[in-house]
Design a protein around this nucleic acid. Structure first.
Lengths: 194, 194
DNA sequence: TCGAACTTTCAAAATATTCTGAAAGCGATG
DNA sequence: CATCGCTTTCAGAATATTTTGAAAGTTCGA
């Protein structure tokens, strides 16, 4: 169906842009430690901006029902997609959080919980394996562990600070740091970046 | 064979703690988008605090020469491990950056370069597919893209600010935000820690 | 209580990533 | 300039992750 018609109406540029966005977002997935499909589902819900049902997603992304279901479940767990319903329709629809800052606050919250907190717990345990009184040679080893503990404690506190208020955590941090953000101030739009 | 002098037990607590740390750090790897082995090699170099050669790493981690070589190369590319040499020894040794803040600055620098910058470039391209003059229905679509562009532009600027100075970027941000960081303040470590 | 309309689950299949080991490469030394 | 000691490369093997699809589960209306 995507065969380009010679007429100006042949291609749908909006659809095309959406597909590009879905692909780009999907590529990021690896770096973020989630599956490509999960990222694509999220991308589709975000960029289309309206509630979609499982079948919409299956068809648009060409994935199986099971895959769509599991990806949606994971997105719900992350708190960046929510269920929605249409009157007189038994199907479930899904809606992506549309405020970017709220979305990333949810992501940060979840990653702290899943990654930073367990890591800190492990670091404490590991440090307790080598009390200097019992393990004389462990001084520098313990210092190295402490340095990591300090670092991740800071990250955790900063994260909570970013996550908890309804306000603009990161933006606030940014302006406090002296950079004025808020206008997108992009480089030349048409062609690629330096 | 690890029997060290008068130690009553065969166990070496320091070695054990190192192994635990290597395992824990390795588990984080998935979430960070790097391979488990690469993270383990890094963990070993960090926690042992001294230069190790390829054979040390192979033996300690029980991995092949090829794997060790590739992981080390990747760590060098990330700029968190450096080559070292011992006099009268032809082997190459490897040294991990020992300052945690410097280490994470390198990581942030690299991730911005590899993930954020290309993403921003793609977002600009995608937005240019749907100028409102040519694609009347694209207004909200473009707004959604702009919201992401703004967000990642902010992230990029903040990142550079954290990365560039030799000082304590994140710590500074943290204290400006009003949280007092620096003491690790967590479940009581068995050993007294200031 | 039944059955239609959906959703979720999960074992097996498909796919992607990581690891190995042997061979090729490299550069210092005799 | 041949050899030695060490490092890097890469095709194929091993392993891990992701996806599918069909069956089981759930919910709602009559």
């Amino acid at each position: 169906m995507t065969t380009r018609g010679a007429s100006p109406e042949g291609a749908d540029p909006l659809r095309e842009a959406q597909d590009r966005f879905v692909a780009v977002w999907g590529q990021m997935a690896g770096a973020w430690g989630i599956s490509r499909t999960m990222a694509e589902v999220h991308a589709l819900l975000y960029i289309s901006g309206e509630p979609l049902c499982t079948d919409d997603i299956m068809e648009r992304l060409d994935i199986s029902r099971g895959n769509a279901s599991m990806s949606l479940r994971a997105l719900l767990d992350w708190g960046i997609v929510e269920r929605a319903h249409k009157r007189g329709d038994r199907k479930e629809y899904f809606n992506c959080e549309q405020d970017v800052w709220t979305m990333f606050r949810a992501i940060v919250r979840e990653r702290i919980k899943r990654e930073v907190d367990p890591l800190l717990a492990s670091l404490f345990e590991i440090r307790d394996l080598t009390p200097e009184s019992k393990v004389p040679g462990a001084a520098t080893h313990n210092e190295r562990l402490d340095a990591l503990v300090d670092f991740f404690s800071t990250v955790e506190k900063l994260g909570h600070r970013f996550v908890s208020p309804p306000g603009r955590g990161l933006q606030l941090a940014a302006s406090l740091l002296g950079s004025f953000v808020g206008a997108s101030s992009r480089p030349a739009p048409t062609e690629g970046k330096p």
